[in-house]
Design a protein around this nucleic acid. Structure first.
Lengths: 373, 373
DNA sequence: ACCCAGTTCGTGAACGTTCACGTTTTCACA
DNA sequence: TGTGAAAACGTGAACGTTCACGAACTGGGT
């Protein structure tokens, strides 16, 4: 009937091709393919073999069109290579799979793309998005329309839901630890990465800026003085640390902002120690940076924790493997992923309303004491 | 017209709802939504606003049905939490995105699922699959029918394409290094994870098996004696190491199989060193295991590399942060991901035929010499 | 007033599947 | 040999969009 020569196959086989080959109707093929009742076991097998032979695969589009969508969620992540994200992504995938959802993933860190590009890429294919967008919550929600968006580590704006972190609490834990160990002269090693930094600007690893902050009660003016200023407190984490610092008794803290890598941190701390050898405690933007700090301290012949305490942040698995093992402000990243999916589930089910207070959760770090502090 | 009350929305808005609201036809709405020519800018804007207001999102199913599929590839990965995989996954996503494809991801490591479950879960939604399936290449390809499957670290079987690794070459590199350093008494620390091990069997970290293998030329009988035997060479990596070992001059090698974690490796090596303090070189299944080896050696007061060399495998970023920094048989995981996507691209474009020799690539490790060996 | 070209918009058909029925076949039992 | 119910199978309609084409409207030049 068809003009297609036997050997070649010009277009995908459809259900009608199988039906014709088996001498039955569409519906019978449907019954065979989906293991529905009301069909003889014999014909079912015959059809399945025939389908296999013809290379027939049901069109997911036709199926979705008539059956209504299975939920598919987009997952936007800046960089899987950063050890912070895999545990989170893994947890999201696990939770979504449990619910029978599928996860369309975009790692937008490479090739100069940003969180908004990721959402634009995902939007046509998904019913919702979960992601670390780095400041594009509002615009992303506009692209998605009524479909729920869960942003992480960012104020929700117009997004349907959000998970943020209590960085003030984390800072309090770190500072309390430093003070109870009697360390007065400390440093905060921030990341140069602000929330909306253009992706193509490659930060210079050598070019870091020091800012001396004589901590004194009442002085809360520790936010960046302006764009491009030399202040070392750049990120939300850093600013929270500065704020808590200002409210507490006099601690002498110097802030340095470096590229978010171990090697950049290593050179930065080397330079810092030359200028200020008396530093007795260092809090790092994250564990990756902290690992560079440990290396620099070892280079300088300082003992950790005796001469200088080191506290990291995030609690990635790397920390346990370092020596000394890293004390860190840990986040249960699998818990973060699970919570994000639960939020989304609530929004999709209607038990939660988009933009409501219940759809904005704040999680806390806990201090995991190992060897470095 | 519709019975839907204004406040509630019972079903998704369709293109007809927008058309009715704007007083135009379907086609005009299509033109407006897809930025096609042949429409007044004024009406275009009016329709877009209206669509936004009604929460209209074009059905991806209807669109796909009429336009023909955008390629969507499934990515099956055993465990994103294992630092081996993120770089690979990230690279696959990057390459796929560059081609305008989307990636549906499944991390099947949690909840007792295996590679076959992952493919079953992905199959209805994708046009192809790339993945580490751990021995299910054949059955997975059967599920996918004519859709191409690229398996990694596994013989292709009936799969369309495959990427395997030259573990013999890696073993040669390691052994050459050990011998040129004059180390005769060595150990291989394998993983207990065989290729098709049932997922629910949780290996006991304490229960590892030693096997003493007096290396001698000609003795190639180093494969496992049977299921559950105590032989330490369990994995493809281990067996390749054993084979190369047997072909080379006498090296005294003990093989131990442990759970694939740093802590398990640590205790195993502790025990091993008590029995055989003279071990002067250790090759580990992967870098994670190697990091445990480093800890155990430090515990025992051994200096690395003076007293004992340590060589890891995979070249994950962790290795650089350890002290001493880990010498390792590195794989460029981004390259692996890129190659997998290129293979798939060739298969989809027809420039490569499924199951052909050209569709089976073998990549090699290279020895990255750092401090530990 | 007329025509023509270009612009703007509308209509039938098709994509491939499932759903809700309706029709035929089977078969055990009276 | 009917009979009736259950099993097996078939048919129109619908899902929501785009494609190919055709119709109507616009405006400038004669």
């Amino acid at each position: 009937m068809t003009q297609t020569p036997a050997g070649r196959r010009s277009r995908r086989a459809t259900i009608l091709d199988v039906a014709a080959a088996a001498g039955v109707s569409r519906q019978t093929v449907t019954r065979a393919m989906n293991d529905m009742p009301g069909i003889k076991t014999e014909t079912r097998q015959r059809i399945q073999e025939l389908a296999n032979e013809l290379g027939y695969t049901p069109s997911r589009f036709a199926k979705g069109l008539v059956q209504g969508a299975r939920t598919s969620v987009g997952l936007a992540i800046p960089d899987l290579t950063n050890p912070y994200f895999p545990a989170f992504a893994s947890s999201v995938v696990e939770q979504a799979t449990q619910r029978g959802w599928q996860v369309v993933m975009d790692d937008y860190g490479h090739g100069g793309r940003n969180g908004l590009d990721a959402v634009e890429h995902l939007a046509p294919h998904v019913d919702a998005v979960i992601g670390y967008l780095g400041g594009y919550a509002g615009q992303a929600q506009a692209i998605l329309g009524r479909r729920p968006l869960i942003v992480l580590d960012e104020e929700p704006g117009s997004a349907a839901g959000a998970i943020t972190f209590d960085y003030r609490h984390a800072a309090e834990l770190a500072i309390r630890r430093l003070r109870s160990a009697g360390r007065r002269h400390i440093a905060y090693l921030d990341s140069v990465r602000g929330p909306e930094k253009p992706a193509h600007e490659k930060p210079d690893a050598e070019n870091h800026a020091d800012t001396h902050v004589p901590g004194m009660a009442g002085s809360t003016d520790l936010l960046p003085h302006g764009p491009g200023s030399g202040d070392g407190f750049v990120t939300a984490r850093g600013r929270a640390f500065a704020a808590v610092l200002a409210e507490s008794d006099a601690l002498d803290c110097v802030a340095v902002a470096v590229e978010e890598s171990a090697s950049a941190a290593r050179t930065a701390v080397r330079d810092l120690l030359e200028q200020q050898p008396g530093i007795a405690g260092i809090v790092a933007f994250n564990d990756l940076v902290a690992s560079g700090v440990l290396k620099a301290l070892a280079d300088a012949g300082k003992r950790v924790p005796e001469d200088c305490l080191v506290i990291g942040m995030d609690g990635i698995p790397l920390g346990e493997q370092l020596s000394p093992e890293l004390t860190t402000l840990a986040l249960d990243l699998r818990d973060v992923g699970r919570t994000a999916v639960e939020l989304l589930d609530g929004l999709l089910a209607g038990s939660l309303t988009a933009g409501s207070a219940e759809a904005h959760l704040t999680l806390r770090h806990r201090l995991v004491v190992r060897q470095s502090a």
